[in-house]
């Protein structure tokens, strides 16, 4: 009986999980048995097998298999844009909460313009202020350095912030920005998206834009998402009139 059960499971395991484009895999699932294919993000190799390490959607891109996680905290990468809140002012830098497990640092040297010695740093960025900044360094020991010396970097004021699972940020942006453009135009809102999952919005139909983001969070793994959100926007905007 013991062996029977094991056999059953083995048969199940060898199944090719990359055939369908949106197949959900769980940690420990053997995605493919092959030495030709390389394990990408969200996977690892054990012997001949490529195994998923997260709950997510498996994808094959050329010779690489990767799994996009359906959930998870923000893991900072160099050149990411993030939305952060200033949490403390130190001797020569600011501490910035960028959500996720690691706090970031904004050094004086990474701020536009010249800051005099002994200057009151809170005049530049005060505690509680929000910034749209760029990650310039992620050290091995997870010291995260931000910069404001970038075209897109700026202080954010007004509006509010909605949180989205960081792995779903690409879905919110959509192919060539299609999703976010749709939400912006229909709700007449400004939207800024940090890779850390913070979405800032300000404009006419903030509540409806917020609803669209929440809907995306819930249904990011389902097909036809753009149509669903478009439909919801229509309905809500009509209600408001």
């Amino acid at each position: 009986m013991d062996n029977e059960v094991k056999k059953e499971i083995k048969v199940e395991k060898v199944k090719d999980r990359t055939s369908a484009t949106t197949e959900i895999v769980v940690p420990g699932d053997i995605i493919k048995e092959s030495m030709e294919i390389l394990p990408g993000t969200g996977t690892f190799r054990e012997g001949k097998n490529i195994i998923s390490k997260v709950l997510g959607i498996a994808k094959t891109d050329g010779r690489v298999i990767s799994v996009t996680p359906l959930n998870g905290v923000y893991s900072p990468q160099k050149w990411d844009y993030v939305i952060g809140e200033i949490t403390s002012i130190n001797f020569s830098n600011w501490s910035v909460d960028i959500s996720g497990p690691y706090e970031a640092t904004l050094p004086i040297a990474e701020v536009k313009g010249y800051i005099e010695r002994d200057a009151d740093l809170s005049k530049h960025y005060a505690i509680g202020e929000l910034i749209f900044a760029k990650v310039v360094d992620v050290s091995k020991t997870k010291y995260i350095t931000l910069t404001m010396k970038d075209m897109k970097a700026r202080k954010i004021s007004g509006g509010f912030v909605v949180e989205l699972t960081p792995s779903k940020v690409p879905r919110l942006i959509g192919k060539a920005g299609s999703m976010i453009t749709m939400i912006k135009q229909r709700t007449n809102c400004f939207l800024s998206v940090g890779q850390n999952g913070r979405v800032w919005l300000k404009g006419d139909h903030e509540d409806i834009a917020c609803k669209a983001i929440k809907m995306l969070e819930e249904h990011s793994h389902t097909p036809g998402l753009t149509d669903k959100i478009s439909e919801m926007l229509d309905k809500e905007l009509k209600k408001g009139k």
Binding site: E85, G128, L130, G158
Partner: peptide, 13 residues
């Protein structure tokens, strides 16, 4: 760890 961003709190008020 931040519970609710200051900006969001101000917006709520």
């Amino acid at each position: 760890m931040i519970m609710t961003l200051k900006l969001t709190k101000e917006h709520i008020l």
